[in-house]
Write a protein that binds this DNA or RNA. Sequence first.
DNA 1: TGTTCATATGAACAGATATTCAGATGATCT
DNA 2: AGATCATCTGAATATCTGTTCATATGAACA
Lengths: 128, 128
Amino acid sequence: MTIKATEAINDVCEIDFVDAEKVKRVRQKMKPAEAVTLLADTFKLLGDPTRVRIAFALAKEELCVCDIANLLNVSQSAVSHSLRTLRQMKLVRFRRVGKIAYYTLDDDHIANLLDEGFRHVDDLLGEK
Amino acid sequence: MTIKATEAINDVCEIDFVDAEKVKRVRQKMKPAEAVTLLADTFKLLGDPTRVRIAFALAKEELCVCDIANLLNVSQSAVSHSLRTLRQMKLVRFRRVGKIAYYTLDDDHIANLLDEGFRHVDDLLGEK
DNA sequence: TGTTCATATGAACAGATATTCAGATGATCT
DNA sequence: AGATCATCTGAATATCTGTTCATATGAACA
């Protein structure tokens, strides 16, 4: 049994699938494009050392913009920009007390992602 | 008790910490720069829909380049480029059988990251 | 009201990135 | 050896991204 591969993209090998059954099985498990895009956007957000550090710090304590900037030795503007994108993607949330804005992680999943991620890199760094 | 903030970056508010104790506590918990950079690079790698789909598919089955390209409807060249970066960062591993290269996830942590990530976005998408 | 302070924001620039294209490599088969 | 096939790779390009700079906002306080 063979299945002709799509020819929409000319660079794709125009042969039959190497293992059509396997591909079929995987295809059924794939997530909808909407979820994939959203997940990629979430990872992309964490794909920056400054934002990783911000998120990690906020996983430990609720912090205001100014303290984050000082803690990480990054300009207030840069922190604010980062926090906005993190906010837009619902990774962090904040409450305002007077002129001070206190930020926290909005979601336990994010703390879990960071933990699992650090476990991964610790393994990598430990291998040497 | 007050601690004078660093003045290295002029945009940072040059005031004392809003909560010096809290900042001190967090600072002690922060991860070394090396680990942070590596983690950010890992997230960055997953911050792309194509690579999320590749990694997710490889979490389910071992697949060759050609089948991945056909499955995801992406050019073989693009898949190969993506796989190389995933390989360099030790997210995937491959074995070669003749001319065919079979790829799998190199690390359970990555599958866990994807699972936790999809749980997060499913929550987000469910809220609407 | 005027000043100071914490935060937010828009524009702009430098550096990074994903994809495409063209061609290389190395394995299989005739 | 020559042809075909799967995969890899370098260069080029168009797009995106993080930071900075300058400025705006809006709260607190004198």
